[in-house]
Amino acid sequence: MTEYKLVVVGAGGVGKSALTIQLIQNHFVDEYDPTIEDSYRKQVVIDGETCLLDILDTAGQEEYSAMRDQYMRTGEGFLCVFAINNTKSFEDIHHYREQIKRVKDSEDVPMVLVGNKCDLPSRTVDTKQAQDLARSYGIPFIETSAKTRQGVDDAFYTLVREIRKHKEKMSKDGKKKKKKSKTKCVIM
């Protein structure tokens, strides 16, 4: 069974824990209790493949930012979460993405942009803004509501699919490099 290491990042209060708990335990946590770091595991079937999701729910508070490099190193894919009623959390996505790329030393890291709290009427981040940002990053965008469960499975499952595509691409690139290195030079 394939294991996928997913990391949920975003500013404090955007609903990272609520999304994760909704996926794992099928219930909505409405009281806000700032996370330092929590880890969850769940076995699911995605596109006919049974897999184990190892999900790291991270601290959004700035005082825990020193811990970010460590979990970013171990993560295979990242859910970059903002709240649709919090423009600052949307603007912060850029910083999370840049930090992930720096730590992973790669421009090509599996990510999904997630606009959470889409059940709320007080939207300050337009869907088109988020779609445009995701398009500019070359990553999928999904709106979710941890409260109603809308888009929750889709967000995590899409990230797994992005990781699969990335692994497939990397193995193809690896095979191309191996083929090239088999060419021999004969000096007579």
Rank of each mutant, 00 (worst) to 15 (best):
T2N: 11
E3N: 15
E3A: 14
E3K: 13
Y4N: 09
K5Q: 13
L6N: 03
V7P: 03
V8N: 01
V9K: 01
V9I: 11
G10R: 05
G10C: 04
A11L: 11
A11S: 11
G12N: 11
G12F: 09
G12A: 14
G13H: 15
G13M: 09
K16L: 00
S17M: 01
A18C: 11
A18G: 10
L19R: 03
L19I: 11
T20S: 05
T20Q: 00
I21T: 02
Q22H: 04
Q22C: 05
Q22V: 04
L23C: 11
Q25H: 05
N26G: 12
H27I: 15
H27D: 15
H27V: 15
H27T: 15
H27M: 15
F28I: 01
F28R: 00
V29S: 02
D30T: 08
D30C: 06
D30S: 05
Y32Q: 01
Y32R: 01
D33Q: 01
D33P: 00
P34T: 02
P34N: 00
P34A: 04
T35I: 01
I36F: 01
E37K: 15
Y40S: 00
R41N: 04
R41F: 02
R41P: 00
K42T: 07
K42N: 10
K42E: 05
K42L: 06
Q43F: 10
Q43Y: 05
Q43T: 11
Q43N: 11
V44T: 07
V45L: 11
V45H: 11
I46L: 10
D47E: 10
G48V: 10
E49K: 10
E49Q: 11
C51F: 10
C51L: 14
C51Y: 13
L52C: 14
L52S: 14
L52I: 12
L53E: 03
L53W: 04
D54N: 15
I55G: 00
I55C: 07
I55H: 02
L56R: 10
L56W: 03
L56S: 05
D57W: 00
D57G: 00
T58Y: 00
A59F: 00
A59G: 08
Q61I: 06
E62L: 03
E63P: 02
Y64N: 01
Y64M: 01
S65I: 07
A66Q: 13
M67V: 04
D69Y: 07
D69T: 13
Q70W: 03
Q70C: 13
M72G: 05
M72N: 04
M72E: 02
T74I: 05
G77A: 14
F78C: 01
F78P: 02
L79D: 01
L79E: 01
V81G: 04
F82G: 15
F82S: 13
A83E: 14
I84H: 13
N85I: 13
N85D: 07
N86Y: 02
K88E: 08
K88A: 13
H94E: 15
R97V: 15
E98C: 05
E98L: 02
Q99F: 05
I100V: 11
I100M: 13
I100S: 10
R102F: 06
R102P: 04
R102E: 03
V103L: 09
S106Q: 08
S106Y: 10
E107Q: 05
E107Y: 06
D108K: 13
D108Q: 08
V109H: 01
V109I: 09
V109K: 03
M111T: 03
M111V: 08
M111P: 02
V112N: 01
V112T: 10
L113D: 12
L113F: 12
V114M: 06
V114H: 02
G115E: 09
N116V: 13
N116K: 05
C118Y: 09
C118L: 10
D119M: 08
D119V: 03
P121K: 12
T124Q: 10
V125Q: 10
V125W: 10
V125L: 08
D126S: 07
D126L: 07
D126K: 08
T127N: 07
K128D: 08
K128E: 08
Q129A: 13
A130S: 08
A130I: 13
Q131Y: 03
L133N: 15
L133K: 10
L133S: 07
A134W: 13
R135E: 14
R135V: 12
R135T: 09
S136V: 10
S136K: 04
Y137M: 07
I139C: 11
I139K: 02
F141C: 10
S145C: 14
R149V: 06
Q150R: 06
V152E: 11
V152D: 09
D153W: 04
D154K: 06
F156N: 03
F156H: 10
Y157C: 09
T158W: 09
V160P: 02
V160K: 13
V160L: 09
V160R: 09
V160I: 06
R161A: 14
R164H: 11
R164E: 11
K165G: 10
K165C: 05
K165I: 11
K165H: 09
H166V: 07
H166A: 06
H166L: 08
K167M: 09
M170R: 08
K172W: 04
D173C: 15
G174A: 04
K175R: 12
K177L: 11
K180W: 13
S181I: 08
S181Q: 10
T183K: 12
T183A: 07
T183M: 09
K184F: 01
C185I: 05
V186G: 09
V186E: 13
V186R: 07
V186P: 15
